[in-house]
Simulated assay, not measured.
Amino acid sequence: MSDDVGPRLRALRTLRGISQRELAKRCGVTHSSLSLIEQGKVSPSVSSLKKILDAIPISVGDFFTLDMDNRDQVFYSPEDLTDIGSGDVIYKLVGGNHQTRSLSFMIETYPGGADTGREMIAHQGEEAGVILEGEIEITIGIETRTLGPGEAYYFNTAIPHRFRNPGKRECRLVSCCTPAKTF
């Protein structure tokens, strides 16, 4: 059995918010035995480990393959967001430092009168968003609509589209698109 069973078990138990005493009670193993296993001083038998993992619950296979050491940044302060905007439009990308991103999640800011350009944009994927404040005029194909706070959109980005703030007040929205854009 792997040498990292104890630390892995402790990390999983902590991740699930279960105390040592609670887990010991759930699986019928003494608290001291569980403590020794987590410290790496005792190696559990396969049947004991299965009994402990069943109380969490997680399979033995998942226990050994679960990535417990997430090295990617998870939380972001406003200063951590990558500004990928151009012109007057500000796009703050969340998770820009993730090399294997599957989507682009952004906070977009359009000053009064700002837009994504005169030319319509088209690319493969999908996009969705919700307006936080102000108004944004969105043209998708031949359909145009002005959305305000709380209103949302979702569309296939292969259809030519354009965003424009028709007002004088700043518009802020949160959007997500696939596939992840590389900037």
Rank of each mutant, 00 (worst) to 15 (best):
T116G: 13
D83A: 10
I58L: 12
D67W: 08
P7V: 03
I90V: 11
V42L: 04
D62H: 12
E135C: 02
G150Y: 08
A122V: 11
Y154V: 01
I138P: 01
F105M: 05
C171A: 05
D80H: 09
A122S: 15
G113F: 04
I84H: 02
R164C: 12
Y154N: 05
P57L: 01
T182W: 03
E119I: 07
K50I: 05
S33H: 11
V130E: 00
A55E: 01
C176P: 03
I159Y: 08
T182F: 08
M68K: 11
G6K: 02
A11I: 14
T146Y: 09
P166Q: 04
T139L: 14
D67K: 14
N156V: 08
P149V: 13
P57N: 08
P7E: 06
G167L: 00
F183L: 05
G85C: 03
G6T: 01
L15I: 05
F64Q: 05
T109S: 14
K168P: 06
C177N: 09
R26A: 09
R169L: 15
V60Y: 11
L132F: 06
T139P: 09
I138T: 04
S175A: 11
S45G: 10
T144S: 15
T144G: 11
Q73D: 11
A180E: 03
T30L: 11
E133C: 08
I159F: 13
E151T: 01
Q39A: 07
Y110S: 02
D4R: 10
L132Y: 02
I84R: 09
S35G: 13
Y153I: 01
M1F: 15
I131E: 07
G129S: 11
E108F: 01
T139I: 03
G95A: 06
L23Y: 12
E170R: 02
R10K: 12
S104T: 09
E38G: 14
A128K: 04
V29I: 13
V42A: 10
A114P: 00
T139Q: 15
S77D: 09
E126W: 07
T100R: 10
G85Q: 07
T100L: 07
R118Y: 08
T109K: 07
G141V: 12
V174D: 03
R13Y: 11
R145L: 08
I52Y: 04
Q99S: 15
V174P: 02
D54G: 08
V29D: 03
F63V: 12
K181D: 00
P78V: 02
F63S: 02
V89C: 00
F105N: 01
G87A: 03
E170M: 07
E126I: 06
P111E: 00
I136P: 01
L9K: 06
D115P: 00
I140Q: 04
E133S: 14
P179G: 03
I52W: 04
G85E: 04
Y154K: 01
E135S: 15
T157E: 01
L173Q: 09
R145Q: 14
D72W: 12
G28K: 08
S77C: 13
K25I: 10
S2F: 05
V60I: 05
D54A: 12
V130S: 07
V29Q: 05
S19C: 14
Q73T: 14
G113D: 07
A11T: 14
L173Y: 10
K50T: 11
K25F: 13
E127S: 15
Y153L: 04
A11F: 10
L147K: 09
F75K: 00
M120T: 10
A24C: 13
Q20A: 13
